[in-house]
Design a protein around this nucleic acid. Structure first.
Lengths: 368, 368
DNA sequence: CAGGCTGGAACAGGGTGGTGG
DNA sequence: GCCACCACCCTGTTCCAGCCT
């Protein structure tokens, strides 16, 4: 065992210091190891500060020669504009704040926070913008986090995960005037649209396979009407099954009732993969082989979907793309433009083993 | 147009402005209104800038009266020190950088990134320190992310997720001299320790229930020897089952072989909940009721653990606590102290429905 | 003399408008 | 009009010489 390079910590900034004498006392300005500043670069290139600044801010008006000299000087000295100073001098720190709130089990509107962060952060980074993240677990902490962002003016704009359930925009934000961009539209409108898109993919897939009666197991507030209408256009029938709560037990009960009923559906779509797993298990336990007798789809792409028997056909959304889209809006906001509306994450169907054409009418006559 | 055209209502009488306001738009500060600075506060409190600064930096030398006046003035004006200016004037921006790297499926050493972020970010925030996050998906991007942190001097210190597989500390960091703290120790040592701790909890639990032969299904590189030794101390026998790959299929095969073999174990511990689910399913399919005939434990706490039948006993680690611990180290680093070693996330047993005492010897005599 | 406070300058590191050759 | 520079700005922090009781 022993140690194992656990602790980091390096000596002072700047290259060239040999062994760290690290005195830990923060009082030694005189030492010659002054970090290099724009002035040093200017001196080396025999120009003024302004000229250097111009080069690093893409302004024209410098001869190619001077420009090259400046770039070289900066490279020689290993100089990069200091973000802190820049943030102060410009009006914009070029950084974005994000509050991730976990309510109970889920993390805001995301099913894949890390994927989202990758898309968002990557896009922001290539635009030279930092992402300041705060994860909280209560509404109080969330408000406080926004308040901090607002007071310290450390970020240009905050990305609001979602307009909470009827809460609207956090009051702190409107009060403080801190610009914000909403990642997920208001629940009433957006969650519907999002669900619709995902459900539509699933239903289309099943309809294409030949299913005519498809059950939909989802939370009570799901837009069953919209689904039904959509389905009608495809010539299939939706059997709505609202779920009193999102527990797997509830999904099991609903599933058992469905398959035991008269004229059972040939396919069931569940709001989440977790519920689908519960339903799948129930169906199998009741003797229906999946997908031969019953097709099952989950509307999110939880990793467990790949681990069931059979593997579970799901719908996933591209959260990285969503993040990238949010970045676009954030840039717009920073530049003073009116941000648009974040695109809903694009949904994609992931066909695995739990869906197949329905049993043929011939075989449908059961032979026990 | 100074107002950037966002939502003019920010300064308005209240949040209750028109319903039609664009949900994706942010607000912008009132035009023409100069942001309040320390000078304004000083003026209002009839003191000098220095006095205000003193108050907000906890320096003594001011009468209680003056101090109160200053605080009031700041409150009246809604003034808070500007983080950007502060970062520049002090040597420390008081912010921490974190790079989250997703390699394929997993996100660094974390099983619950959001939980970790909550612990880390919460602790940092209460210390007035910001967290700048960058999620990447490749080693190249990771290096680049560190490089950005290093050049821009936007963070005091970076938190390195884990010392990669033999890569050691990213070269950029050592080269740049940017201080860093490592969240997870070197894999060779730490992963083992971590796994050991989690496995130990599981084995203890099972031993306490009376199990004498416990199979352990884990990746080939798992420290089976250490587990065996640990088990011996508890008076139980470990049946090691290395897994060629971490697919559920592999887990199924191993499980089938285990329960069909001579003198099968009465309990199986799986490295992850996902694998445990696969194993559980297999066992049940083979006619062994869980937990009556076979106890099953998963070594991580994937949400699916609560959704199986029976629910799955697992081991979880408190990643929020880990995050908090990292924050402690980061503070130490910022303050110039040499950071210590990050505590491994504390593991806890989550007893659910998949474990029970082994079948009694009496019942064990099967009647074929 | 000391504690309490002032006023101002010198920063931190760079951005930018106006000006002059 | 092209190039480059000067001087001031951003917002605090910190240091210092002093002034008042």
């Amino acid at each position: 065992m022993g140690r194992g390079g656990l602790n980091g910590g390096a000596a002072g900034p700047g290259p060239g210091s040999g062994l760290g004498s690290d005195p830990a006392a923060g009082s030694s300005p005189p030492p010659g190891e002054r970090p290099v500043t724009i002035a040093d670069v200017a001196a080396r290139a025999r120009v003024s500060k302004s000229a250097v600044s111009f080069v690093f801010n893409g302004r024209r008006g410098l001869s190619a020669d001077t420009q090259a000299r400046i770039v070289r000087a900066a490279e020689d000295l290993g100089w990069t504009p200091n973000a802190r100073a820049r943030a102060l001098a410009r009006r914009r720190p070029r950084s974005v704040g994000l509050v991730i709130r976990l309510d109970g089990e889920d993390a805001g509107p995301w099913t894949d926070v890390v994927g989202f962060l990758e898309g968002l952060g990557g896009a922001l980074a290539s635009g030279g913008t930092a992402l300041v993240v705060r994860a909280v677990s209560s509404a109080v902490d969330e408000e406080e986090a926004y308040a901090v962002f607002a007071d310290e003016s450390q970020v240009d704009v905050v990305l609001v995960g979602a307009l909470g359930t009827g809460e609207g925009v956090p009051a702190v934000l409107t009060r403080s005037g801190l610009p914000f961009v909403v990642a997920a539209p208001a629940p009433a409108a957006a969650a519907v649209a999002d669900r619709e898109e995902r459900a539509r993919l699933a239903v289309r897939h099943l309809a294409a396979l030949g299913h005519g009666r498809i059950a939909l197991v989802a939370g009570e507030r799901a837009p069953f009407d919209a689904f039904a209408e959509e389905a009608r256009l495809l010539g299939v029938e939706i059997v709505p099954r609202p779920l009193p709560d999102s527990s797997p037990v509830a999904a099991e009960e609903v599933t058992a009732a469905l398959v035991a009923g008269t004229s059972p559906p040939t396919a069931i779509v569940y709001e989440t993969a977790l519920l689908a797993v519960a339903g799948l298990r129930t169906a199998v336990a009741l003797g229906l082989s999946v997908p031969a007798r019953l097709s099952v789809v989950g509307l999110d792409n939880d990793p467990v979907a790949a681990s069931t028997t059979p593997t579970l056909t799901t719908v996933k959304r591209d959260e990285a793309a969503w993040g990238r889209d949010c970045a676009r809006l954030l840039f717009a906001s920073i530049d003073g433009d009116r941000p648009g509306i974040a695109a809903l994450p694009r949904a994609e169907l992931v066909v695995r083993g739990s869906t197949s054409p329905p049993p043929s009418p011939l075989r449908h006559e059961r032979t026990p």
